[in-house]
Design a protein around this nucleic acid. Structure first.
Lengths: 213, 213, 213, 213
DNA sequence: AATGAATGAGCTTTCATTCAT
DNA sequence: CATGAATGAAAGCTCATTCAT
């Protein structure tokens, strides 16, 4: 005798739906402001499935974090390769990263929540330097530039990367407080573009007026 | 005969204790991860007093945010004034701000939680440009530097300030994820000092190798 | 040494303000749906005063009930006396009572809340037959009418009074459920007047078609 | 080996138990004087289930109200049909309604609480004219009586129904205040029967002494 | 694999009342 | 007489998780 109720059975689909709902909600409201009920409501699956597939709310957050981390691999680096010299390549890389943060707020925000929680859900697996194409490319380009004599030799590449990231992240991490204080909408695309252009100038040449040759 | 039940009756003290406990706990764990019970437990006051003095948990967060905002006014700017030129002054200002974020994690973290919550508790009053001595000094020094011919004239001062802040904030906002990815403890004082030194170099001169004169 | 703060002291006024606020709020929302804070808020007095003057929330309700009971004494009976016979007098009395319930919703509602609470706050003092001018007049008129041969002799005066009151009260006690069921707004003045007219007809002559003489 | 923890799992039973407890307690003490804890205590179910099945305390009250409303349909009208003429039928109907209010204090009291709360929980669904057999029968009998010449033709049937209901309800709505004022226990069965008999006489013939033929 | 009923602890908030001043 | 700070209990409701089916 066959099962009387032909319930839809689609394991992968259920898992995926839960994960997508979790990413969206955790990114928007943070871990503690989201309930498992809200997640299953949005995913339109049974609550029990969360525990079946992920084990706990914490583990689900961890999975969500790992998932968005993987999106770094999808950064479009086409423009970078087309740069004719290290300086141009680095400029394109910075632009790509800036655009990535903008296009993937779930990554940007989830990362910030996690940092504020002191990396509770950070595991060795879910984000390793080696898997991060931004990091490897960045390092390679800078070392090329130094070797070619385009960049100063006394640069600490690791800190330089931190500074690049900081110059991009600030537009998101402090967006609302700065927008109010400065009376300038940091969410506005034109404002961000103007900021990015000056970031590039700053990074390469600083603010000092070049000495007359 | 002494009073049998010496009920403490010190309005200011009670209010202050609640606020301090709230600042500490909200900064550490965020709004939603902290319960009013934990706050009153730490403050050693009756729970009802939170509502008596602040009205709601949200209003208490708002008060906590406003309180730490006021600490900006206490930034030590003595070294800034002693700089003999705009470049030196700006360097000292940057150092002061960097040190401030380090010394006041309650400010730094509360501000980040609030930004992730899209500025829910931000009011016109609790952080205004005019009351922020960092902003006003920054602007003045840069304008001086431009006028003196030390800095380039095409700078957007507002975005430049954002960039300065970004270069400092990143050591806190992304501390844990970067520490793990880069295998470098961003919480370490020496690491931060090394970073700060390169930030200054970057800001003034960029990464380009100066052209041979 | 005189008191340094010349606080307004007006005992009667404070007591009266509390009582009026209590009557209004208890009548509108009922005993349990009103908090002492709301009462003192509306009365604009200190909370402690409630306990000073009345002792407890229950005692305050009791005082409120006694106060509105006294309003029965203020029923305007002028028209009643001008009736030229018992039938006319009784009609005028019924009209007066009907108008009273309409004009004094605080009485009407407070009385209903109290009955639903099974007369918890009813004391011998606060409403006695002897003090109720409606009761005494009613009885006198009916007895006159019976003696004069206008009314039947087999009437139970007490129950008749209950029936009169019931015919008036129903427009308030079941106003909302009947309005919805009958699709007729019992709060409308014209509707109530139409009802009252038929009440009078019913009371004196019933619904039976009079036999042809 | 039997199950160690035989967790009861009977949705219908749980829902019914909550509803019955709610009806009983709300009818007795009113909405605001009853806590959800008391309801679940009486129903011997987990508090969470109230929200699982009903959503809120208010929605539970609404469900309780709708449930007792349905009891009107169970009024025993057998005697009504056996009346040999409209007058007899109407008398039997009145007796049935009077008896119903007496037998179903949960209906009677819940309805009064709800009216005092201005019909907050009244929805189109939970009590509609069409579903009320008392209303439809009443109207039919009166119209028959008028057509047969037994009743006066100038009757407003709707108001007449209100008056009937008022004559019955008053014994419950004002029971305690009247009992005290009149020094007569309106809760006593004999007293109510005596009242009902006079109600019938009043309704049909009024209080006027019939003119000598 | 999937369902939704069931749980107990905990959430933010409000309660009537009393205290020191 | 008047103030408002202080209290402990309890309010309605939500939490992450587990269970029987």
């Amino acid at each position: 005798m066959p099962t009387s109720t032909p319930v839809q059975r689609n394991p992968d689909r259920t898992r995926r739906r839960i994960l997508q709902a979790a990413i969206k909600l955790f990114a928007t409201h943070g871990f503690h402001a989201v309930s498992v009920d809200e997640i299953v409501g949005r995913a339109a699956v049974n609550k029990r499935m969360v525990y079946h597939y992920f084990g706990s709310k914490d583990a689900l957050f961890e999975a969500a974090l790992a998932e968005v981390y993987r999106r770094i691999e999808a950064i479009e680096f086409g423009a970078v390769e087309q740069g004719s010299n290290p300086r141009e390549k680095l400029a394109r890389l910075l632009e790509s990263y800036f655009a990535f943060l903008d296009a993937e707020p779930e990554f940007t925000r989830l990362l910030q929540w996690e940092n504020l929680e002191k990396g509770r859900h950070l595991t060795k697996e879910n984000h390793l330097l080696s898997k991060n194409p931004f990091f490897t490319r960045f390092r390679a380009i800078v070392e090329d530039g130094v070797a070619a004599g385009d960049f100063r030799a006394d640069l600490d590449v690791t800190h330089l990367m931190i500074h690049f990231i900081g110059l991009c992240f600030i537009y998101h991490s402090n967006r609302f407080s700065l927008s109010q204080s400065l009376e300038l909408d940091l969410g506005d695309a034109a404002v961000k573009q103007r900021g990015l252009r000056q970031v590039l100038r700053l990074v390469f040449d600083g603010i000092a007026r070049p000495a007359r040759s």
